[in-house]
Nucleic acid binder design. Structure first.
Lengths: 195, 195
DNA sequence: CCCGATCGTTCCGTTTACGGAACAGCGTTG
DNA sequence: CAACGCTGTTCCGTAAACGGAACGATCGGG
């Protein structure tokens, strides 16, 4: 049983960087209250419209309760905003970092037998970074936004400039490196079969 | 959203309403399970690592429980993904709709002289949709997640299946159409020069 | 002034999400 | 083929999130 490389396109896992930072539950309450007041709605009215108790909404706004998804969804739906609008940071991101590369997960999409993970990736100028082989069947698609990227299997990396597109099977060790002095920005799509 | 008009990939419509749409709670469970299995972690192990009960995680994955934010966060943090990765919701508010195509803006990136807009796109089965010419210098990059997509200039459209990648200059009228009965899901990257 | 209406908070009984333990199913071992 | 180790599910007592009602505070009108 091959121990799968933790999360994300890089080895680095966040075992050491859990939570703490921006999951402040009180922040959610503050955002809800701000959205409500921006619309000039009273707590009582919003609670009634959303079909939740006033006690629930009050506790949520003050951070004294740990709401269920159902409750939070009912409220955000009534405010006309997506759930993500009140969760952590706007461009929320589990960010995986390496020496030269950082990648932020934008979205996960599940097909019937394949999973896609879409990242925004940045590669700093310098020697680049090595990423170990992923499980079999994993494909990486990269579209370069800025700079010049050299990436792919260690023995046969590819190069693309802004607007270019790279694609390789990543079941072998592969590298990411910025060519030149400019930081590389790109989108990275990971495609792997569901087991 | 402080973000530019940019009329999106489709003719501007933006009917606006972030309709309640489907917030299928079971879908959250399916995503969590998919992410867990993709990492080769057992339910028992993930529950222990995340500090939640096995019963909780089991119920969550099977959609028989309505988790609290705290619970869901503990699990997604351990998986190394943001909360938004498992929430069905349209990640960002800006959704552009057409008859057959809908696209949700995920992120905007500004380079010194070029702007990128990254969308998640869905194309419903059927006759497809025509999009008028964009300004000169606009390039579209599409990576297909599910289904088979036929897209590109009206006089020379290209075809790609799941995992495939298309790219064309979109300063001429172009089309999007799903081939076959399956809905097409894809990422769409718009690249255009700043004025 | 008093009164009614509404504000947000707090109290309380009910519902339910929680974690621990017991459970059945499956592969591997001795 | 019992004995293990592991999987994921189900049972159950407890903690807490829930909605409804009661509360004090604040505002505007008669």
């Amino acid at each position: 049983m091959p121990y799968s490389p933790a999360s994300g396109p890089l080895t680095a896992n966040a075992s050491g960087q859990p939570a703490a930072s921006d999951d402040d539950p009180a922040a959610i309450g503050r955002r809800v209250r701000a959205l409500r007041e921006a619309r000039g709605i009273s707590l009582s009215a919003l609670a009634r419209q959303a079909g939740v108790g006033k006690a629930t909404l009050s506790g949520l706004e003050n951070g004294t309760r740990n709401p269920t998804l159902e409750t939070l969804y009912a409220i955000t739906a009534q405010l006309g905003v997506p759930l993500t609008a009140v969760l952590s940071a706007p461009a929320s991101g589990a960010t995986v970092r390496g020496a030269a590369v950082s990648a932020t997960l934008l979205e996960v999409f599940e097909d019937s037998d394949v999973t896609y993970e879409l990242y925004r990736m940045r590669v700093a100028p310098g020697p680049g970074q090595l990423s170990p082989a992923h499980q079999a069947g994993v494909t990486e698609h990269v579209t370069v936004f800025t700079g010049v990227l050299r990436a792919g299997p260690v023995d046969a990396p590819l190069t693309a400039a802004a607007g270019g597109h790279l694609r390789w099977a990543s079941d072998v060790p592969h590298v990411y490196a910025a060519v030149g002095d400019e930081e590389v920005t790109a989108s990275l799509l990971l495609r792997y079969p569901r087991k």
